[in-house]
C-alpha cells in the first residue's frame, strides 16, 4: 500500500473544497469498510482520503415533519437499525443495515458508503430503491437530487462527478397500509456476498385485498442493482393473490441479466431473483397488515 494523505473537513463546504483541490486522487472516506480495503489491496489508487465523519449532515439521521427520513451518508448502520423509530417505520432498512458485515463492521459501515461503493450485489441498494430513496448530492456547482435507482451506472461506478459528494439519502414517508422487506440469498448463513438479493415495498388497499402500488428491486443480477418497474406494475391495482405475486416474481426474473461467476450461475441467479422477489413481497404484505 502506498502512503496517502488524510483530511477531515468539518463542513460540507470544506469537504467540497478538499475534493476540488485534490481532484481524481481524492476519495471520500465514510466508514471505510470498503475503500480502505480496496486501497490496501491495490484495487483503488487513493492519494487523499477525505473523511466526512466530522460533518453533521453526513453522520446524522432525522425524520421530517412529513414523516420522511433523511439518513446521512456516513451514519453507521448500527445506529440506524438500533433506532426505535426506524425499526417501526422502515423495517426494510433494518433488514439491510443489520446484515451488512458483522457488528464491528456495522458500527462503521453506512448506507451512503454502500451506495457509493456501487457494487451490483450491495445489500442496501435494493432496499433504498424499493423505498423510493433520493440521493442528496453536493458539488462544486451546488446541490442536486438523484433517485437511488439512477445512481449506480456500472460495477463500482456511479453518477458522482469529480468533486461531488453524497450527503444523505431521503426516503418519503411510508404510505398508509404499506410494508417493505429485504432478503438476500447466500450459501452460508453469514459473512457472504449476495448471490441474489431483493427488496419490495408494497402499499395495500385499506382492507388489504389489493395492491395500491409497489416497488421491486433486485441485486447481483446485472451490472447495477435493478429497479424492476414491471414487477411493481404487475402488482399495482391487482388483488393480493398468489397468482399476482407469481407474476411479479416472473417479471423480476425476466428483468435479471446475470452472469456466471464463483458466487453462482446465471441460471441460478435468474431463478433466485423470482424466488426472493416472492419472499420479499410476502414479507412486505405481512408487515403492511401489521403482522
Amino acid at each position: 500500500m502506498q502512503a496517502l494523505e488524510y483530511v477531515a473537513p468539518a463542513s460540507l463546504d470544506e469537504a467540497v473544497a478538499a475534493l476540488a483541490k485534490h481532484g481524481a486522487t481524492a476519495r471520500v472516506l465514510a466508514g471505510g469498510t470498503d475503500v480502505i480495503i480496496q486501497a490496501r489491496e491495490g484495487r483503488r489508487q487513493v492519494g487523499v482520503m477525505v473523511d466526512i465523519k466530522g460533518i453533521k449532515e453526513a453522520t446524522s439521521f432525522s425524520f421530517g415533519s412529513d414523516g420522511s427520513l433523511t439518513v446521512g451518508a456516513a451514519a453507521p448502520c448500527a445506529r440506524l437499525y438500533g433506532d426505535a423509530e426506524v425499526q417501526k417505520r422502515f423495517p426494510a432498512l433494518v433488514d439491510s443495515a443489520s446484515l451488512i458485515g458483522g457488528i464491528q463492521i456495522q458500527s462503521r459501515a453506512s448506507l451512503g458508503g454502500n451506495l457509493c461503493n456501487s457494487s451490483p450485489a450491495a445489500d442496501s441498494i435494493p432496499t433504498l430503491i424499493a423505498l423510493g430513496g433520493v440521493c442528496n448530492i453536493i458539488g462544486p456547482s451546488g446541490k442536486r437530487d438523484v433517485p437511488v435507482e439512477d445512481f449506480c451506472t456500472a460495477p463500482g461506478q456511479n453518477v458522482l462527478q469529480a468533486g461531488e459528494l453524497l450527503v444523505s439519502i431521503t426516503f418519503p414517508a411510508p404510505a398508509a397500509n404499506s410494508g417493505a422487506a429485504f432478503e438476500r440469498f447466500i450459501p452460508r448463513n453469514e459473512m457472504d456476498i449476495a448471490v441474489v438479493n431483493a427488496a419490495a415495498s408494497v402499499a395495500l388497499s385499506a382492507d388489504g385485498s389489493k395492491f395500491e402500488s409497489a416497488r421491486i428491486a433486485v441485486g447481483a443480477v446485472a451490472p447495477t442493482p435493478l429497479y424492476v418497474k414491471a414487477a411493481g406494475d404487475a402488482l399495482a391495482g391487482k388483488p393480493v393473490s398468489e397468482a399476482t405475486i407469481d407474476a411479479a416474481a416472473a417479471a423480476a426474473s425476466d428483468a435479471a441479466k446475470p452472469i456466471t461467476d464463483m458466487r453462482g450461475s446465471a441460471a441460478q441467479r435468474k431463478h433466485l431473483a423470482g424466488v426472493l422477489t416472492k419472499h420479499v413481497i410476502n414479507t412486505a404484505i405481512a408487515r403492511a397488515k401489521g403482522a
Partner: peptide
Amino acid sequence: MANSSFLDYRIPTSLD
C-alpha cells in the same frame, strides 16, 4: 482461482 479469499472460498462459520 477466482475465489482466493475467505469471502468467496466458503468455509463454514459457526452459524453454518
